[in-house]
Amino acid sequence: MNPRKKVHPALNVLYVVGLVLFFVAFMFPFAWMIISSFKTQSEILTMPPKWIFTPTFKNYVEVFEGQDFLMYMLNSFVIAVGATLAALVLGLPAAYAIARRRLPSLGFTILVARIVPGITFLIPWFMIFSRLKMVDTMPALILAHMLVTMPFVVWVMIPFFEGIPNDLIDAARVDGCTEQYAFLRVVLPISGPGIITGSIMAFVFSWNNFMFSMILSGVHTKTLPVAIFNFLSYSEVNWGGLMAASVIITLPVLVLALMTQKYIVRGLTAGAVKG
């Protein structure tokens, strides 16, 4: 811990002012997005901005009436949950093996999935999935998103599994259990926080994915990040609708982040702090 000594009062003021400035700078775009989503097109385009105005819900009505936003939302949700669960099923044992059996090169292989530029996959994947008649189906999108979610799960879980004391596993094995049994019955139950962390991160990045969804989704599986481009149409930019749609897209992940912040912080720091 950094023990704090007596601080000059001027420094204290500076500190508070600095913190407030940081806060305003980082929150302003969200505020602007929300405010604009309640304005009419011509109010949005008026400078200086009106801070006090009669809010209109027209933009939100337009978003939900003009397009099937509820369905897009449901699609995004199903795909993100599916890709997260599947990533857990594949990723957890892999992370365990990498952590307990010291397989750093394998860990690196999985990281390669994050290194390959996403465009590389678009045409080949479409060729495969369309031949398998899987374009515009949930399984295809979930498989594609798993390439985003699995590396997250693995990277969050490796340091977590490394941190589990050997005694715990050994104790289970002394009782005659196999290691895989110990993994299921002993390791996983105490790994709840780690799993939650990995799942949240995976969910968020799947929810936000644009490129893979763009190519593989269709009428039945369109996701929110793809749908937002519909507000930049041929004959107009509907700023109000665009901002309302942005609010709708980001709100679920923002709420999720607010509710689970301590897990996210752990997820972000998992790989880094352990080194």
């Binding site: 806060f23 980082f26 929150m27 775009p29 969200f30 602007w32 997005m33 604009s36 968020v204 929810w207 936000n208 644009f210 929110l224 990040p225 937002i228 481009f229 507000f231 665009l242 901002m243 749609a245 942005s246 897209i249 980001t250 992940v253 923002l254 999720l256 982040a257 607010l258 912040q261 996210i264 912080v265």
Partner: peptide
Amino acid sequence: KTLFLLPMVATPVAIGMV
């Protein structure tokens, strides 16, 4: 601390529009 999490989880294409 929680609020500072928001920029990174917000959907990039939506935030780009903002």
